[in-house]
Measured scan of single mutants.
Amino acid sequence: IEEVKKIVSEIQSKQLTRITINGNTYQVNSPEELVEYVRKVFS
């Protein structure tokens, strides 16, 4: 979970619009959307 928080804060600070998780690239339009992807991947 700490690793996830680190990734999320990194993305928020860079305002990235794409994230790659487990080889899948997602278009991310908002931090909320990012959190949803993270929940799916780590749930």
Rank of each mutant, 00 (worst) to 15 (best):
I1R: 10
I1S: 13
I1C: 15
I1K: 10
I1D: 13
I1G: 11
I1M: 12
E2I: 14
E2H: 08
E2R: 07
E2G: 08
E2L: 09
E2S: 09
E2Q: 08
E3R: 13
E3K: 11
E3I: 14
E3V: 12
E3C: 15
E3D: 11
V4N: 03
V4M: 15
V4L: 15
V4E: 08
V4R: 04
V4Q: 07
K5M: 14
K5L: 14
K5C: 15
K5V: 10
K6C: 12
K6R: 14
K6D: 07
K6Y: 08
K6P: 02
K6A: 10
K6L: 09
K6W: 12
K6V: 08
I7P: 01
I7Q: 03
I7W: 11
I7V: 07
V8Y: 05
V8L: 14
V8K: 02
V8M: 09
V8R: 02
S9E: 13
S9G: 09
S9T: 11
S9H: 13
S9L: 14
S9M: 14
S9Q: 14
S9P: 03
S9C: 12
S9I: 12
E10K: 06
E10H: 07
E10V: 10
E10N: 06
I11W: 02
I11L: 03
I11H: 01
I11M: 02
I11P: 00
I11Y: 01
I11V: 03
I11R: 02
I11F: 01
Q12G: 04
Q12H: 11
Q12C: 14
Q12S: 06
Q12Y: 15
Q12R: 15
Q12N: 07
S13H: 14
S13P: 01
S13F: 09
K14G: 07
K14R: 10
K14N: 08
K14P: 03
K14D: 03
K14Y: 05
K14C: 13
K14E: 04
Q15T: 03
Q15N: 10
Q15I: 05
Q15G: 13
Q15M: 08
Q15K: 12
L16P: 02
L16A: 03
L16M: 07
L16K: 05
T17I: 11
T17A: 04
T17H: 05
T17Q: 03
T17P: 02
T17K: 05
T17G: 02
R18T: 11
R18C: 14
R18G: 04
R18Q: 11
I19D: 00
I19C: 05
I19A: 01
I19H: 00
I19E: 00
I19F: 03
T20S: 06
T20L: 05
T20I: 08
T20V: 10
T20C: 12
T20R: 05
T20N: 06
T20P: 00
I21C: 11
I21D: 00
I21M: 03
I21E: 00
I21L: 09
N22A: 08
N22D: 08
N22R: 08
N22K: 07
N22Q: 07
N22L: 09
N22G: 09
N22F: 11
N22H: 09
G23Q: 03
G23F: 04
G23I: 01
G23R: 01
N24G: 04
N24C: 15
N24F: 14
N24D: 07
N24S: 09
N24E: 12
N24W: 11
N24H: 13
T25S: 10
T25V: 12
T25Y: 08
T25G: 02
T25M: 12
T25Q: 06
T25L: 10
Y26G: 01
Y26Q: 02
Y26H: 09
Y26I: 15
Y26T: 04
Q27A: 11
Q27S: 13
Q27T: 10
Q27F: 08
Q27C: 14
V28K: 15
V28Q: 15
V28F: 15
V28W: 09
V28H: 15
N29Q: 08
N29Y: 10
N29G: 15
N29E: 10
N29F: 10
N29R: 07
N29T: 09
N29H: 08
N29W: 09
N29L: 15
N29A: 10
N29C: 13
S30Y: 06
S30P: 10
S30G: 03
S30L: 06
S30H: 06
P31Q: 01
P31V: 13
P31H: 05
P31W: 15
P31N: 02
P31R: 01
P31S: 08
E32V: 04
E32P: 02
E32H: 05
E32Q: 08
E32Y: 09
E32D: 10
E33S: 02
E33A: 07
E33Q: 05
E33R: 03
E33T: 03
E33M: 07
E33H: 03
E33W: 08
L34Q: 00
L34I: 01
L34G: 01
L34M: 02
L34V: 02
L34N: 00
V35T: 05
V35M: 09
V35K: 04
V35H: 01
V35N: 01
E36G: 03
E36Y: 05
E36R: 10
E36D: 12
E36A: 07
E36N: 06
Y37L: 15
Y37C: 15
Y37P: 00
Y37G: 02
V38E: 00
V38Y: 04
V38G: 01
V38D: 01
R39A: 06
R39G: 04
K40C: 15
K40V: 06
K40D: 10
K40M: 11
K40E: 11
K40W: 14
K40Y: 12
K40G: 07
K40R: 10
V41A: 09
V41W: 12
V41C: 15
V41T: 06
V41G: 03
V41E: 09
V41M: 14
F42H: 04
F42R: 02
F42N: 02
F42V: 05
F42C: 15
F42D: 02
S43E: 14
S43A: 13
S43C: 13
S43D: 12
S43K: 09
S43G: 14
S43T: 09
S43H: 10
